[in-house]
């Protein structure tokens, strides 16, 4: 079986500064991977690069997604192929209603697969059904995208969009940040409801807290642009207990920095 995502020696930079310095990661269908690490280690950069953010330049390595060269695809085609990024800071788009935004997203995906646009009533039915996954208020669905949403509502909205688009690979970038414990439970519950044997999830987080709700199969520690440690769920508990200092020492020590 070929892996769903295969990252090989990935290097990327922004404004001349190298952030990713040789990432290797393999994700198979049905797996949940957690990526942890101290601030500034490159976690969000990895998410952005995988989603195709033009602000970053890939300077080396390769990424294969479902057998295709991911890095040659436009951000929209990556989405159509089944990649989804839940933003750490979802963007507010005043004047664009959630309904128009989602309709455009769904219909462009259908166009990509040669399907007719979804009719109005089918579309609204789909919205209703998927809203329930994260208990997103109907009022939010009729407002402008993320405009005036609270931190928790924005994150729910991300998972709602994920439910609408049914991706194969979801990257959740700090989805727990800014959430109170109830919202965290709802959002994590939503992610778990969407999980199947055929899709995979990469959870980027600072804290072990989220991993109580979304159980990872693998935990990776990203530090200075590389994955420096990989383990099972127990690694997250060790990090929670001991912090990142021991990893920094171990890594910087062997590197002689």
């Amino acid at each position: 079986m070929t892996a769903m995502l295969e990252i090989n020696d990935l290097h990327a930079r922004i404004e001349g500064k190298e952030i990713l310095k040789g990432i290797n990661l393999t994700v198979n269908a049905g797996e949940v991977h957690a990526i942890m690490g101290p601030n500034g280690s490159g976690k969000s950069t990895l998410a952005s690069v995988l989603a195709g953010n033009p602000a970053f330049t890939v300077t080396g390595g390769s990424v294969t997604f479902k057998g295709k060269d991911l890095l040659t695809l436009s951000p929209e085609d990556r989405s159509h192929e089944g990649l989804f990024l839940s933003f750490q800071y979802p963007v507010e788009i005043p004047g664009v209603s959630m309904v128009n935004f989602m309709r455009a997203a769904i219909n462009e995906k259908r166009k990509y697969y040669g399907q007719e646009p979804l009719g109005a009533s089918d579309f609204l039915k789909l919205m209703r059904e998927k809203r329930a996954v994260v208990e997103l208020d109907n009022k939010l669905a009729s407002r402008s995208v993320n405009e005036g949403f609270s931190g928790g509502e924005k994150k729910r909205n991300e998972i709602f969009q994920m439910a609408m688009l049914e991706p194969c690979l979801s990257i959740l970038d700090e989805t727990d940040s800014g959430l109170d414990i109830d919202a965290l439970r709802t959002v994590a519950g939503g992610v778990n409801k969407l999980k199947t044997d055929n899709n995979a999830t990469i959870v980027i987080t600072h804290y072990q807290r989220l991993l109580d709700y979304i159980k990872p199969d693998f935990v990776h520690v990203l530090y200075k642009g590389r994955i420096v440690k990989t383990g099972g769920p127990e690694l997250a508990l060790v990090l929670e207990d001991k912090g990142y200092d021991w990893i920094k020492q171990e890594f910087d020590g062997t590197k002689g920095e």
Binding site: A51, A55, S79, V91, F101, A104, Y112
Partner: peptide, 19 residues
């Protein structure tokens, strides 16, 4: 906003139009 929309599968042209 452009990038956000593109990650949802909305093409560059359509995202521009919407914005």
């Amino acid at each position: 906003a452009m990038f956000y929309m593109q990650t949802r599968g909305i093409s560059c042209q359509e995202a521009r139009t919407l914005l």
